[in-house]
Amino acid sequence: ARSHPLLPLRDPDCDDPDVELAAMEITQHVNSQLQSGYKYRLNQIDKVRVYPRRPAGEVYVMEVDMLETTCHVMDKTPLENCTVRQLAEHAVEGDCEASVLKMDGQYKVLNVKCESNPDSAEDVRKVCPQCSLLAPLNDTRVVHAVEASLAAFISQNQSTFYKLLEVSRAQISPIQPSVYVEFVIAPTDCGPKGADDPSSCHPLTDQYGFCKGTVTKKDGGEDVAVSCTISVPLVPAPQPDEAVPTPAAAEPDVAIAAGPDVA
C-alpha cells in the first residue's frame, strides 16, 4: 500500500526556543563528526518545518548557516569560547540541512548534510582590499611555508620529535610576498632527534600543537615567524590520601614562539 506523505504539523518561527535547541544539537553533532579543520558555530537558522513522527515525537527539518571558528576540532576549548573567523580572515560558511527528532524533551540528529564554502574574493575585497585570501593547501608556496615554519619551530624546541598532522588553513597576501599558514603538530614517543625511520614514531595521545606561521620573502631570502600552542592533557586530580603534591588538575596550554627572524 502506498503511504501518504506526512503533512507538516507546523512552521514555527526560526527563533523559536525549541528550534534553537534543535539547531544547537545540529551544531554539536556536526562538530563531533569533524576530524580535521575547525569547529563551526551557529550563525542563522534559515528554514524549519515540523513533521509528526510515528509512533511518537516530532521531526524538525531545518536549514542552518554556520561559520568557521578559530578553534581546531582537536582543540578542547568549549565552542562558546571559540570566535568565528572574521571577514578579513576570509570567512568560511557552512550550509547544513538536517533532521532532528524531538521526543520526550530530548533532541537527536537523525541526519545532516553540510557544504562549506569560503566567502567570495569580491566580498573580502569590499571590506578589506589588502587582506590575504585563502589559498589551496597543496599550493607549492603553502607547502613551503609549512615546511619552513615547522623547521623553525623544531630548531628552537629540540626536546621532542614532532610530527606534522595536518595543514589546516593558508592565506596568501595580495600585496607583499608573504604566506600565512595554520597547521597541527603532535609530539611523538621518539627522542629529540627522532628515529632513523620517522614513520616508527607515534604521536602521543591527546597532545597537539596548534601552529601559526608566516613566511615573508625578503632581499633574496625569507623571514619565518612561527608560534605554536601545545595542548597539555588534563592531569587527574590528586586523591585525598596522596602525600606527594601534584600539579593542578588543569594545566594551561603552553605557547611557544620562534622568530620572527629564525631562518
Partner: peptide, 27 residues
C-alpha cells in the same frame, strides 16, 4: 477614521519569521 500606518518589517499574524536572527554576520 484614519487607518493605522503600516509598520515596515512587521509580519502579518501567523506568518512564520524565517530566516532567524544573525548571530555573527552574513556571508
Amino acid at each position: 477614521g484614519l487607518a493605522a500606518p503600516a509598520v515596515p518589517g512587521a509580519a502579518a499574524p501567523g506568518v512564520p519569521l524565517c530566516p532567524g536572527r544573525i548571530r555573527h554576520f552574513k556571508v
